[in-house]
Amino acid sequence: MSDVLTAPVKIKIITTITQQDTAPEKFELWSEGTIMQKNDQIYLRYEEVQEDQHRNTTLRFGQKDAVIIRNGDIKMRMPFVLGQARKGHYNSNYGQISIVTLTKEMKFEPSKSIQNGRFYVQYELLVGEQSVGDYCLELNYTEGN
């Protein structure tokens, strides 16, 4: 059985969305959460609050793949594998929508401490075989309280 390390972290989340014929939109969010390392995978858990919507988010990632799972007012599962298209889903008040992520770039930059590092993913999001834009998600995490 492997050792599991868990620690509090502060997380800075930067999302950049580029849609056809529009200027990129950049969103920044700060949160606190926990980080856990199990084998070669990192699990970041935190809460996102935007416009009175609450989402508990888990980001699991390693060097080769990642997945974002959101629960709360919005439920979502988005898998990422570099150079591949992966099916996921997005649930809202209007029902479930199938989505596809085409991962173009993905980097995991750990530091010597589990509580510090960076995860970056760039992907195209498709809904119903139509591109809805290119997304860049960057998470920087540092030691929390």
Results as ranks from 00 to 15, higher is better:
1 M>G: 15
2 S>T: 11
4 V>D: 00
6 T>G: 04
7 A>K: 07
7 A>H: 00
8 P>D: 05
9 V>E: 00
10 K>E: 14
10 K>C: 13
11 I>F: 15
13 I>C: 06
18 T>S: 05
23 A>R: 13
24 P>S: 00
24 P>A: 07
25 E>F: 04
27 F>D: 11
29 L>Q: 08
31 S>G: 03
32 E>G: 01
33 G>D: 02
35 I>M: 12
35 I>Y: 06
37 Q>L: 13
38 K>S: 13
38 K>A: 12
38 K>L: 13
39 N>W: 03
45 R>P: 04
46 Y>P: 11
51 E>W: 11
51 E>N: 13
52 D>M: 07
59 L>C: 12
63 Q>V: 14
66 A>R: 02
70 R>H: 05
74 I>A: 03
74 I>V: 08
77 R>D: 04
79 P>I: 00
79 P>T: 03
82 L>T: 03
86 R>P: 05
87 K>T: 06
87 K>F: 01
88 G>Q: 02
90 Y>F: 10
90 Y>C: 02
91 N>W: 01
95 G>W: 01
95 G>S: 09
98 S>L: 00
104 K>I: 03
105 E>R: 15
107 K>F: 03
107 K>R: 12
107 K>V: 08
108 F>M: 13
112 K>D: 12
115 Q>C: 10
117 G>Y: 04
122 Q>V: 08
129 E>R: 09
131 S>F: 11
136 C>A: 12
141 Y>F: 15
144 G>N: 00
145 N>V: 11
145 N>A: 08
